[in-house]
Design a protein around this nucleic acid. Structure first.
Length: 645
RNA sequence: GCCGACGUAGCUCAGCAGGUAGAGCAACGCAUUCGUAAUGCGUGGGCCACCGGUUCAAUUCCGGUCGUCGGCUCCA
């Protein structure tokens, strides 16, 4: 007798014989069985046709849940593989998992697939769906599975099985059988909505030394409506793309003449300078002193620091008067030299040197991506020199600074990762352990959850990374806190401690924005180009109703500028509606219409890009309120109360 | 760097079985002087990414280079 607890608290008792998950679902309600994708027994997803041998919590997974989506997508990837096998019998398959919003399969195929081939594969998939083939599961001992896949020449599958323990499961639909943990849909006919999206290359096991496979990305949903919605969402997301908005709003661009070396236009520069002013303000308050170190320094320095050994591939070099120099890929050696210049007492520590430092790194051409990944960028860097006792409180201070900027000022959601010792690293295992534990300790004290990235640290120390999302949900590393016991030693840094002896300081390398460029890209996508007023390149667009009001408009602009409000007069010979539309498209926070009425009464007709027409406001009131919106770094309009219903 | 797709006016994009190019928007000029998301008419603007090959003839076909996009690897 097996006992199952259902989600509503009821219990169901079943004879332990040939009862399947589907039988239980049917017993609850035949309609439930019809909607079922798979079942969950004691937290484990199982196929509907699985014979149950143990009781426990029982739940039917229907098409609306997150878990169902994963099963649907995983099944879609198998159906895609089957279609490919039918069209290209020589195809060999690697891995084909479900992802965050779709699925992919990596395939080894002699012929190169193009976009048109996706249509043919999709059509074949439709046929397989129409055939409504049941997914059938079987288990084989590891040895037999190895022999089976070896006999088919599936070297990728055998490599995967090598790493598995015990029995392995296989799933078969029609003539196609694949290695898989499952579970799957009951049959191919249950796949209601899918689409193949793109084609890409992917190295087997993510190793650039191993064969490049062809990867097909697709997505699948429980119903056609959800699929349509998702595709529309992708289209909407594309409109937020910072490369598109950067061009449209005339903020920045990357030109063919300088791949990976971005240009900032006048308006982008306003945004950037505003961001940097903000940065200076908060760092001054947090006890940082600003420095600036050279972009080009003697190659010998980079040999000392370890960059020559560990980072040379990413560096640019040059020769000056027959001497070798390097263009800096990081700011740390320069900061070390500044620390070195004088005798430091423990009373001076922690010493926080901040630097908006322009670094150059040779990134692979295929990885360049607008402002997100470039070959030269400005890190909002800082190096904190301190005693070992100060580590935790300093790291906590940086975490708090980053959280203030991300959460309070910009309203970003972020996640944290801790990266540990890489293979290509300097220093002993003990030093790395001490440093890693210090970072873990600070994260725990702040109550932050984090993911561990094994072997992903910098060559000189472990790091905490802060990741932000772009318009498509791809995450980018922005803030980072890196603990370093090594470079101070290599540079022979010391301070005089209480005992009168020289001691080596510990250094934290850290950035808040990460790079100004990447951060601006994230900001652009996050706000879809509609920056908060304090950041907006143009804060107020003044729109004279006709040429007669141009003089008044210019006077108003001067008055705004005296109050540090960035204003622009649209003096084109166009109608009011045209200029309103233009300002809306440029996402200017406030539009001001000036006509006879306003000029006469020293008022202005106010319009907000989000709230629409807000009616008439006294000039002095407008200035007072917008200035308060700007200085408070608000993300909300100060004129919300004026909105008419 | 690797795999695939792509590169036509400032922008978004048409076009071409091979006969040296078009639209909308923008810009400029004229008229209009206008009240909350596009006034009308007119004008200028292109080494069709670059280099080479095939051809009587190449923006179009082929090869290479550079760049862009989507991924992989790598990273702020």
């Amino acid at each position: 007798m097996l006992i199952f607890r259902l989600p509503d608290g009821n219990k169901m008792e079943i004879e332990a014989s040939q009862t399947t998950a589907a039988d239980i679902a049917k017993a609850i309600s035949p309609r439930l069985l019809k909607a079922a994708i798979c079942a969950k027994v004691d937290g484990q997803l199982v196929d509907l046709d699985r014979v149950l041998v143990q009781g426990g919590d029982f739940e039917v997974i229907t098409s609306n849940s997150e878990e169902a989506l994963e099963v649907i997508r995983h099944s879609a990837s198998h159906i895609m593989a089957q279609a490919i096998k039918r069209l290209y019998p020589e195809a060999k398959f690697a891995i084909g998992p479900a992802t965050q919003d779709g699925f992919y399969y990596d395939i080894d195929l002699p012929e190169k697939l193009g976009e048109n081939d996706l249509k043919a594969i999709e059509a074949e998939m439709q046929k397989i769906v129409a055939e409504d083939l049941p997914f059938e599961r079987r288990e084989l001992p590891k040895k037999s599975a190895l022999a089976y896949f070896a006999s088919r020449g599936d070297q990728y599958k055998t490599e995967i099985i090598e790493d598995l323990e015990g029995n392995v499961s296989l799933y078969k639909q029609g003539e196609f059988e694949d290695l898989c943990r499952g579970p799957h849909l009951p049959s191919t006919g249950k796949l209601k909505a899918f689409k193949l999206l793109s084609l890409a290359g992917a190295y087997w096991r993510g190793d650039s030394k191993r064969p490049m496979l062809q990867r097909i990305y697709g997505t699948a949903f429980a119903d056609k409506e959800s699929l349509k919605k998702h595709l529309e969402l992708l289209e909407e997301a594309a409109k937020r793309d910072h490369r598109k908005l950067g061009k449209e709003l005339d903020l920045y661009s990357v030109r063919d003449e300088g791949p990976g070396f971005p240009f900032f236009h006048p308006k982008g520069m306003v945004l950037r300078n505003t961001l940097e002013d903000f940065w200076r303000k908060i760092h001054q308050k947090a006890g940082y002193m600003e420095i600036k170190t050279p972009i080009i320094l003697n190659e010998q320095l980079w040999r000392n620091s370890g960059h020559w050994d560990k980072y040379r591939e990413n560096m640019y070099f040059t020769v000056i008067d027959d001497t070798n120099y390097a263009v800096k890929p990081m700011n740390c050696p320069g900061a070390m030299l500044l620390f070195q210049r004088q005798l430091i007492s423990y009373r001076d520590l922690p010493l926080r040197y901040g630097e908006l430092g322009l670094v150059h790194r040779h990134e692979l051409s295929g990885t360049l991506h607008g402002l997100m990944r470039v070959r030269c960028f400005t890190q909002d860097d800082a190096h904190i020199f301190m005693t070992p006792e100060q580590i935790e409180s300093e790291i906590i201070g940086v975490i708090e600074l980053i959280d203030y900027v991300y959460s309070d000022v910009f309203g970003f959601e972020y996640h944290v990762e801790l990266s540990t010792k890489p293979e290509n690293s300097l220093g002993s295992a003990e030093i790395w352990e001490t440093a890693t534990n210090a970072l873990k300790g600070a994260l725990t004290r702040k109550g932050l959850s984090y993911k561990i990235n094994v072997g992903d640290g910098a060559f000189y120390g472990p790091k905490i990374d802060f990741h932000l999302k772009d318009c498509l949900g791809r995450t980018w590393q922005c803030g980072t806190i890196q603990l370093d016991f090594l470079i101070p030693e290599r540079f022979n840094l010391s301070y005089i401690a209480e005992d009168g002896q020289k001691h080596t300081p510990v250094v934290v390398h850290r950035v808040v924005f990460g790079s100004i460029e990447r951060f601006i890209a994230i900001l652009t996508e996050h706000f879809a180009g509609a920056f908060p007023t304090w950041l907006a390149p143009v804060q107020v667009q003044i729109i004279p109703v006709s040429e007669a009001h141009l003089e008044a408009a210019k006077k108003l602009k001067a008055e705004f500028e005296e109050n540090s409000i960035r204003a622009y007069v649209d003096n084109r010979n166009e109608k009011l509606g045209y200029k309103i539309r233009a300002a809306q498209l440029e996402k200017v926070p406030y539009m001001i219409v000036l006509g006879d009425k306003e000029v006469e009464n020293n008022t202005l007709a106010l319009r907000s890009r989000t709230l629409g027409d807000l009616g008439t406001v006294k000039v002095s009131d407008f200035i007072k309120d917008i200035v308060s919106e700007i200085t408070s770094l608000s993300r909300e309009s100060a004129f919300k109360a004026l909105k008419k219903n």
